[in-house]
């Protein structure tokens, strides 16, 4: 596995908005190997709490390695306490990347919900070098989930936002933003990442308009190396591991159970 696992230093750990924090790590070996859509698996503390490592999409890989996260439980809570100079045990980069869009694609639509926006800055960093029209449709619960979207604009993305409570942008789910795009089966390609009900709505939209699409999935992970088979999800091709077969899948192969 070579240097797939190593210890790296925290450069900064700062809030970008009320809900999201950006962690920057001095991890050149990972930066050099990373591709958009891949993730890292962090052992947050040396002891037994939190017990599992935690997987995070790579938010940016330029000089340093960056992740974007929301404090939702014990793992991210402990991560938020890390300070400059602290060390982290990191495995990565892991997983199947987004990959480049197929031939003939001109318009790239990134549909993100909440912290699911994390992998898209890295993706737009890569795609901006080509001749694509880039669009980000972003939905958050409240204005606390609306963060510094300027980085996306700097990459040339057209940005449309929605919040559940209407505090920023259009009121409602990110699906309310679908009318903002004019999709074409031959030239439009969708990348999506976010809560399962949101990804299910993107899948419906893509089916209706016959669009090709890839989605990045999240699951609780133990090893993230394909050994435990704990992060398997249902696909039209049988069970697939999110850590190795994914996290990026053809969106049309994903099976979203009914969400109650």
């Amino acid at each position: 596995m070579g240097k797939l696992q190593d210890i790296y230093k925290v450069i900064s750990n700062e809030k970008l908005c009320e809900k999201f924090t950006r962690l920057r790590i001095d991890a050149k070996p990972i930066v050099e190997k990373s591709r958009p859509g891949q993730f890292i698996h962090i052992r947050i503390n040396d002891g037994l709490e939190p017990f599992f490592r935690r997987p995070f999409s790579i938010y940016r890989a330029k000089k340093s390695l960056e992740i974007l996260y929301e404090v939702v439980g014990s793992g991210t809570g402990a991560l938020a306490a890390k300070k400059k100079g602290d060390t982290l045990d990191v495995l990565g980069p892991l997983g199947t990347p987004f990959g480049m869009p197929p031939k003939g694609i001109k318009q790239i639509v990134m549909v993100a919900g909440g912290v699911g926006v994390a992998p898209f800055l890295f993706l737009s960093d890569t795609l901006k070098k080509k001749d694509y029209e880039l669009i980000l449709l972003y939905g958050g619960r409240t204005k606390g989930h609306i963060f510094n979207i300027d980085e996306f604009k700097k990459n040339g993305c057209g940005v449309f936002q929605a919040t559940d409570d209407g505090s920023v942008g259009v009121k409602g789910r990110v699906s309310k933003l679908f009318p903002k795009i004019d999709p074409c089966p031959e030239t439009t390609f969708i990348y999506t990442c976010g809560p399962r009900p949101m990804m299910a709505s993107v899948q419906d939209f893509a089916r209706k308009h016959k669009l090709r699409a890839r989605g990045s999935c999240e699951e609780v992970m133990a090893c993230a190396l394909g050994a435990c088979l704990g992060c398997s999800i249902k696909t039209t091709q049988g069970f697939k591991t999110v850590c190795g077969d994914g996290p990026v899948f053809d969106l049309h192969e994903l099976i979203f159970e009914k969400i109650t």
Binding site: E49, P50, F51, V220, C228, G230, C231, S232, F239
Partner: peptide
């Protein structure tokens, strides 16, 4: 064997709960 339906694992205090189902 294709194994059990997800979710298959969860974190527990100092441990883990699993039902992979011998995939």
């Amino acid at each position: 064997r294709e194994g059990n339906p997800p979710p298959r694992i969860a974190e527990t205090p100092s441990g883990m709960l699993n039902a992979i189902g011998i995939e």
